[in-house]
Amino acid sequence: MNTNNTLQKVLFESKHLALCLLDKSGNVVAVNSTFKNQLCQEEIDTSRPVSIRNLSFWNKDLKALDTAWKEFLVNGAASFNSYLYNREELLFHEVELKQANDEGGVLMEFFKKQEPTKAEKESAKTDGELDNIAAIISHDLRGPVSNIAYLLSIFDGGVADKEELEEFMDALKKSNAKTLDIIDEMGVIINPKLKRRSHSASSLQPLICSILENFEEEISQTQARVVIDIQDHSDWKVPKGAFEMILKQVVSNSLKYRKEDETPKIVITCSRKNGDRIIEVKDNGLGFDVVENEQHLFGLFQTFHNRPDSRGIGLFQVKNRLLSIGGAISLKSQEGIGTTVTLNFKQNELEEAPLYN
Results as ranks from 00 to 15, higher is better:
Ser271Leu: 07
Glu166Tyr: 14
Ile337Pro: 00
Ser79Ala: 13
Asp161Ile: 03
Leu55Asn: 08
Ser82Glu: 15
Leu62Ser: 01
Ser123Asp: 14
His93Tyr: 15
Val290Met: 09
Asn147Arg: 14
Ser146Phe: 08
Gln223Ile: 00
Lys36His: 02
Gln317Arg: 10
Ser252His: 07
Gln249Phe: 02
Ser252Cys: 03
Asp229Trp: 12
Ala18Ile: 04
Arg225Lys: 14
Phe304Met: 03
Ala100His: 02
Asn348Leu: 09
Ala124Thr: 03
Leu255Asp: 03
Asn253Tyr: 00
Leu207Met: 07
Asp289Ile: 07
Pro308Asn: 04
Gly128Val: 01
Asn75Pro: 01
Ala77Gln: 14
Glu262Trp: 00
His233Arg: 13
Tyr150Gly: 01
Arg197Cys: 06
Asp235Phe: 15
Ser33Asn: 13
Asp184Leu: 11
Phe80Arg: 03
Pro144Trp: 11
Glu260Val: 02
Arg258Asn: 03
Asp23Phe: 10
Ser175Leu: 05
Ser56Thr: 11
Gly105Trp: 01
Ser138Leu: 07
Leu180Asn: 11
Pro144Gln: 10
Ile148Met: 12
Glu280Ile: 05
Glu217Pro: 00
Val250Thr: 09
Ile190Met: 13
Val29His: 03
Ser203Lys: 13
Glu96Pro: 00
Glu109Arg: 08
Glu166Gln: 13
Asn274Glu: 10
Asp309Tyr: 06
Phe12Thr: 12
Leu165Val: 02
Gly128Glu: 15
Asp261Cys: 00
Ala242Arg: 00
Asn274Phe: 10
Leu152Tyr: 12
Gln99Met: 10
Phe345Thr: 03
Asn32Cys: 07
Glu216Phe: 11
Ile44Tyr: 07
Val29Asn: 02
Asn357Ala: 05
Ile325Lys: 06
Lys173Met: 06
Lys178Leu: 12
Val50Phe: 04
Thr126Ile: 04
Ser56Glu: 13
Leu22Met: 10
Arg311Ile: 00
Met245Ile: 13
Ala224Pro: 09
Asn348Pro: 01
Lys282Tyr: 04
His296Gly: 06
Glu164Phe: 07
Ser123Trp: 04
Asp235Gln: 14
Tyr257Leu: 01
Phe298Met: 05
Glu292Trp: 02
Asp261Thr: 02
Leu7Lys: 04
Lys24Asp: 12
Pro116Arg: 05
Asn75Gln: 11
Ile211Gln: 02
Thr46Val: 14
Asn2Val: 14
Cys40Gly: 09
Lys193Tyr: 11
Phe168Pro: 04
Leu73Cys: 10
Asp184Tyr: 14
Phe316Ser: 01
Val250Pro: 00
Thr339Trp: 10
Tyr356Ser: 01
Met1Trp: 13
Glu280Asp: 05
Arg197Gly: 05
Asn176Arg: 15
Leu331Val: 08
Asn253Leu: 05
Ala201Trp: 06
Pro192Asn: 08
Ile228Trp: 06
Leu286Trp: 02
Leu331Lys: 03
Ile246Arg: 04
Ser138Gln: 13
Glu216Pro: 04
Glu94Leu: 09
Glu262Pro: 00
Phe110Ile: 05
Ser33Pro: 08
Ala160Thr: 14
Leu255Phe: 08
Ser14Ala: 13
Leu11Gln: 08
Lys174Leu: 15
Asn75Asp: 12
Thr303Ala: 07
Ser198Leu: 15
Thr3Leu: 12
Phe243Cys: 05
Asn284Pro: 02
Asp61Gln: 06
Val28Asp: 03
Ile246Val: 15
Lys9Val: 05
Val188His: 11
Leu286Ala: 15
Glu349Ala: 12
Cys270Trp: 04
Glu335Asn: 09
Leu84Phe: 06
Glu167Leu: 12
Lys60Glu: 11
Asn54Ile: 06
Glu42Val: 06
